[in-house]
Design a protein around this nucleic acid. Structure first.
Lengths: 207, 207
DNA sequence: GTCTATACCACGATAGAC
DNA sequence: GTCTATCGTGGTATAGAC
């Protein structure tokens, strides 16, 4: 069951959208500080000064990218929820619910532009103003995962550390996973298998 | 069984050592590009120009830090091997071998200065010259993990993706784990439990 | 919405005295 | 081993024409 890429609604002008795209790519590749506005503008095919027609500052540009990355993740999570509503309560049913959400998070990382991946790699060292503005949005997304994991496991299993390891492990895959060479479905399956038994304490039902 | 912090032998002068310490902290906290030599020098209590008596360039300084970070990891892995030589072949014995190495890697991240953590967070976006110089050292460390995991699991279990998830998951903990608030032993136990059953397909023997 | 021109500053790095 | 002084470059950002 392969979910399709999500569509995040946007009212961006074509010019603004193009800047966001290029900037996210470069922030992901080189980091926020190393990627200069001149270089971004160059790759877009405009002058650096023109960026200020669309964004008030470089920090403002970064914030827009981080927000968009979170929007993609959130949209993917919602889509995964939709495909698993009314799922049963058997261990196999629970496992496929987890699998669907894992697949959705990874798809957000690799199938909807560089926004989500750029978010993951640049957030920690982003300027404090930007980080503070984004923290609430991140917290809301993490809370959805907390609810999901609590729902999937017995009431007495502490899901806090497991959630952090799961999200951290998936996000860390941006360091080595190449979506043009590896299969996203395979990666999702590996992640799910790796975490399912550790989470529930039961052997994995899948061969 | 708590392993003690490792000692990486060094011939550094006190002045050089102090610069390395401060620079690693700032690279970790703000990223390589964002941390300026002036700021580093300021925190050390010297002038920026004085750094060039000890390092030929900012890139040279980064490379020394990344190398030191790898040395700490490697030393920790070796120490873990030493404590588990002659271990048995039972599932419980294998599990504690994994646990010892997990504990060692996490200790390297949190108990021996900011070098290992700085390595983990700055490597991906480091200047190409620096990255290329460090890649062989990283590969050697990852190969040690590959050998270990192959040794711990059945011959037909593919350990490649599991190794990447395990190391990625542990390294990603620098984003949320605070060693002054949480227990390193607890974290190591969580990581081990989370991965052991997923790796072997057998239920975790620990309550 | 993009341009040219430019201000202003902080950066990495070098020279040479002590 | 550290200092002062300084160079050249490239960074973000602004002003104002088109």
């Amino acid at each position: 069951m392969t979910t399709s890429p999500v569509d995040v609604p946007t009212t961006d002008s074509p010019a603004r959208a193009r800047i966001l795209d290029v900037a996210a790519s470069l922030f992901l590749e080189q980091g926020y500080e190393a990627a200069s506005l001149r270089r971004i503008a160059d790759e877009v095919g405009i002058q650096a000064a023109s960026i200020y027609h669309h964004f008030t500052s470089k920090e403002d540009l970064l914030e827009a990218i981080l927000r968009r990355g979170m929007a993609v993740m959130d949209e993917a999570f919602t889509a995964a929820e939709a495909t698993t509503t009314g799922a049963g309560e058997s261990q196999a049913d629970r496992r496929s619910r987890l699998a669907a959400h894992v697949r959705a998070h990874l798809a957000a990382l690799y199938e909807n532009g560089p926004f989500t991946a750029a978010h993951v790699t640049t957030f920690r060292t982003a300027p404090a103003v930007v980080r503070d503005a984004i923290v609430p949005v991140r917290d809301a997304y993490e809370a959805r995962w907390t609810d999901l994991l609590n729902d999937l496991t017995a009431a007495d299993v502490p899901t806090g550390p497991a959630r952090l390891m799961l999200l951290g492990g998936m996000n860390a895959s941006v360091e080595w996973f190449d979506p043009t060479r590896g299969s996203l479905d395979d990666l999702a399956e590996v992640v799910t298998r790796q975490f399912w038994s550790g989470l529930t304490g039961h052997p994995d039902p899948t061969p």
